[in-house]
Design a binder for these strands. Structure first.
Length: 575
RNA sequence: UCCGACGUCGUCUAAUGGCAGGACAGGGGACUUUGGAUCCUCUAAUCGUGGUUCGAAUCCACGCGUCGGAACCA
């Protein structure tokens, strides 16, 4: 992050509390800064492999790496870890860049591990000459065999002690394309008996004739992660190389390479626990599976935990950053309750989203004592706490729509909404009383309510001081704007949808994770909703005009999250 | 089984040998022209056993549990 930003607190979205404690990584950075370890310099990097879309777990890492750079006046590079051309693609590079920017971060430099293929090759020769790397002609099965097991040490390859000159000549042949794919590999000569299997002569290069999205066909040998990552960090003079826990076992190798090379710097690798969230999956493999098997509509399906999916669902970048701040950073593996994420987006949208009324499941109401062709305009603020957001005009007429859920012919205890003979307030309008119920004689389904209104209660107050229990939302039938609303729920029914008990994670998919409602009625003020604009539909939740499918005249909204619902809680309903 | 890491309210996270605190979730209440928001309030935790210490979540020992590690993946 090179652009100047005000205060660390404001930049990170975290409250500026005095004496606030730092996470263990920031604690290390702070101490290193104080001791002058890296010459007062802080440099981090975010190193995605371009083989999938970023998800909210990556958002945690992005907020950490870019956040530290921002807070401590350092830099953060975006470096694509593109060492495996068979799995990587520019589509992913582009989506990753878009997602990071959308999240509110800008990298100091955009780099690629493939930028360093030349330097990496030279260093490999250096290691060979020093007797610390050798070309192994064993096949994959033999290598696996000789690696030993978790409890038994490995055995040296017959090629382990061959002269450096021989390895050098062979390595040059590998690089020159004179050998077929998989014929041999370059291995680091570390320790075949180490209890850490990563140190049992790890493979540095494999021969693979694959077209690389950046280097094209310039190379037919590609470096492995361990050989590329630390060296890339060193070249970029990264000070703190932050990664997730599964790389902890790789740290000794990370250090070994740098200790045995004339590398420009030796960054410190620090590991933290990756994010897990309830009711979703986070591994790229599983997300890819959902996409490929069309279990979702794509990487940006609003039910996906991808950054693009969350964005499309209506989550704000601010709410994701706030979430990252609240979950903290530690080494303990954990599963964060998705309710915390939902809380963060409600918190943000409650403050910023304009209010409007929408009826998702319309029930027609005829106000019998309201004149046939009369229309009046009522006025309501866009936000009850922010008058500066202005007001909107709401037409009122004899025929209205209300939410089906807001009426019960036989109301249970604590159901305060409309029922025969009962009076409620129409939001911003009049008190109405239900005087009759019209049903389809064939099915018994309620098709219409007959009501009367009290003209003295215009704008919602009764001159005689009488109270109503609740206020319900409504839309004038004649003036209603039609829209499609996609009501999303959790993608999985189980808080931990992992493969277990012989069942695949897909068996926990929630069949009701998407409900598409096509005849929803919106008040006219919502007709101008721009793609990706976010609204509160009063009493229902926060909704976002779909950035791909919504157009003026053919509006499509995604439900980001419902409002907290006391009645749902009491009645035990899901939403 | 070997190596490594990690065990604090239901969940996430603080404590840096000195009052176990915060957030989310949950309960109760106030207020309310959104059963929203807001405000008040309550419930709720140091894996176990020893040891060191005036004092241990923290240090030590031994257990127990969880996770990761045997791709020419990252």
């Amino acid at each position: 992050m090179t652009s100047s930003k005000p205060t660390p607190e404001e930049a990170s979205g975290r409250p500026a509390a005095a004496g606030e404690s730092l996470d263990f990584i920031r604690e290390i950075v702070k101490a290193d800064l104080a001791s002058g370890k890296n010459g007062q310099r802080v440099a981090t990097r975010f190193p995605p492999e371009p083989n999938g879309y970023l998800h909210i777990g990556h958002a945690k890492s992005i907020c950490l790496n870019f956040g530290i750079a921002r807070e401590f006046g350092g830099t953060c590079n975006l470096r694509f870890d593109d060492t495996n051309p068979t799995k990587e693609d520019v589509e992913y590079v582009d989506s990753i860049k878009e997602d990071i920017r959308w999240l509110g971060f800008e990298w100091s430099k955009e780099l690629y591990a493939s930028d360093y293929f030349g330097q990496l090759y030279d260093w490999a020769e250096h290691l060979i000459r020093a007797g610390k790397a050798y070309v192994d002609e064993s096949d994959p099965d033999q290598i696996r065999e000789m690696r030993g097991t978790l409890t038994e040490p490995g055995k040296p390859s017959p090629y382990r002690d061959r002269p450096a000159e021989e390895s050098l000549a062979l390595f040059r042949k590998m690089r020159a394309g004179e050998l077929p794919d998989g014929a041999m590999v370059l291995r680091a000569r570390v320790d075949m008996t180490s209890p850490n299997l990563n140190l049992r002569d790890p493979i540095m290069y494999r021969i693979r004739r694959a077209h690389h999205h950046r280097t094209g066909d310039a190379w037919c040998i590609y470096p492995m992660y361990d050989w590329a990552h630390g060296q890339s960090d060193s070249i970029e003079q990264i000070t703190h190389s932050i990664c997730t826990l599964e790389f902890e076992n790789h740290r000794p190798l990370y250090d070994w390479f740098l200790d045995n090379l004339p590398a420009p710097s030796h960054p410190q690798q620090i590991e933290f626990a990756r994010l897990n969230l309830t009711y979703t999956v986070m591994s790229k493999r599983k997300l890819l599976r959902l996409v490929q098997d069309r279990l979702v509509s794509g990487w940006d399906d609003p039910r996906m935990p991808t950054i693009s999916g969350l964005r499309r669902r209506g989550f704000t970048a601010q709410s994701l950053r706030a979430f990252a701040d609240r979950i903290g950073v530690a080494k303990r593996e954990s599963i964060v309750d998705v309710a915390l994420l939902e809380h963060c987006v409600r918190e943000d949208l409650n403050a910023s989203a304009p209010r409007v009324m929408a009826v998702l499941r319309p029930l027609r109401v005829v106000i019998e004592n309201y004149p046939e062709d009369q229309t009046e305009e009522l006025e309501l603020p866009f936000h009850p706490d922010h008058p500066e957001m202005g007001t909107r005009k709401i037409p009122f007429s004899r025929e209205l729509f209300i939410e089906r859920d807001d009426f019960k012919e036989d109301p249970p205890k604590k159901f305060f909404r409309l029922a025969p003979g009962r009076e409620v307030r129409l939001r911003g309008g009049y008190f109405i009383k239900c005087t009759g119920v019209v049903k389809d004689p064939a099915t018994g389904e309620i098709t219409e309510l007959r009501c009367s209104y009290d003209p003295a209660t215009r704008s919602g107050a009764a001159p005689d001081g009488r109270k109503v229990k609740v206020t319900i939302h409504w839309v004038s039938a004649r003036h209603a704007v039609e829209a499609e609303v996609r009501v999303y729920d959790r993608l999985f029914t189980d808080p931990d949808p992992s493969d277990r008990d012989g069942k695949e994670f897909t068996s926990f998919l929630n069949p009701a994770s998407l409900e598409t409602l096509r005849a929803c009625k919106l008040e006219p003020a919502a007709s101008s909703a721009a793609p990706e604009s976010r609204w509160q539909f009063e009493r229902l939740g926060y909704f976002c005009a779909d950035r791909r499918d919504s157009r003026p005249g053919a509006l499509v909204f995604n439900r980001t999250v419902s409002l907290k619902d006391e009645w749902a809680r009491i009645s035990g309903a899901d939403n």
